[in-house]
């Protein structure tokens, strides 16, 4: 019961935060709503037993990415942008198109609802190790190479960002 209630609260946070994010005029407000949405997603992670991701979501996304966005919002002058028109000219056709996609997905899900109710695998016997340890085990054994590549990607991204944001190129 508590779980169910929590799910709906978090789901509301995630979805409502998302809607508010894309509708705010002021980019700072958008970012704050994005935090709400991300917190909701983090709560959902917690509900689904992904404690490590919960922490990573808060530290990396909210602490890192959103903060970075806020910095940039401060760097570039958005006052004029806030006064400008918020949606572009294609907004109605885009909305229609997204609606079509949503309808299609809804159709798929409805038609395959039986198939979607996947047989739940019996909860894995508790092995005494927590979620973080299991993630670490898999990440540093099976996914060692992708992990290294990801680190390289981050390095390249940092260098690239510095090169592009630097004053004289």
């Amino acid at each position: 019961m508590v779980d169910t209630l929590s799910f709906y609260i978090f789901a509301l946070m995630a979805l409502g935060g998302g809607v508010m994010t894309i509708t705010r005029r002021n980019a700072v407000h958008s970012a704050l709503w994005l935090i709400v949405s991300l917190l909701g997603a983090a709560g959902l992670f917690l509900l689904r037993g992904a404690e490590f991701l919960f922490a990573a979501q808060i530290v990396l996304y909210i602490g890192g990415v959103v903060l970075l966005i806020l910095y940039v919002v401060m760097l570039v002058n958005l006052d004029e942008t806030a006064r400008a028109r918020q949606f572009n000219k294609q907004w109605w056709i885009a909305l229609a198109c997204v609606a079509v996609v949503g309808a299609e997905i809804a159709f798929v899900m409805k038609r395959g609802l039986g198939a979607l109710a996947l047989p739940g695998v019996a909860a894995v016997a508790p092995t005494g190790e927590g979620n973080t340890e299991r993630v670490a085990d898999v990440l540093f054994s099976e996914y060692m190479l992708p992990f290294e590549i990801a680190s390289l990607l981050l390095l390249v991204a940092v260098v690239g960002a510095v090169v592009m944001a630097k004053k004289r190129v």
Binding site: L15, I22, R48, V98, A106, M109, A117
Partner: peptide
């Protein structure tokens, strides 16, 4: 709460995000 709940939420969030990408003018958003 079942998986389907999560999937519906996920799809909804996806669509919200897509709308944002397609319609907003502000690149930050």
């Amino acid at each position: 709460v079942t998986n389907v709940h999560y999937m519906v939420l996920s799809v909804a969030l996806l669509l919200v995000g897509t709308i944002g990408v397609l319609t907003r003018r502000n690149i930050v958003i």
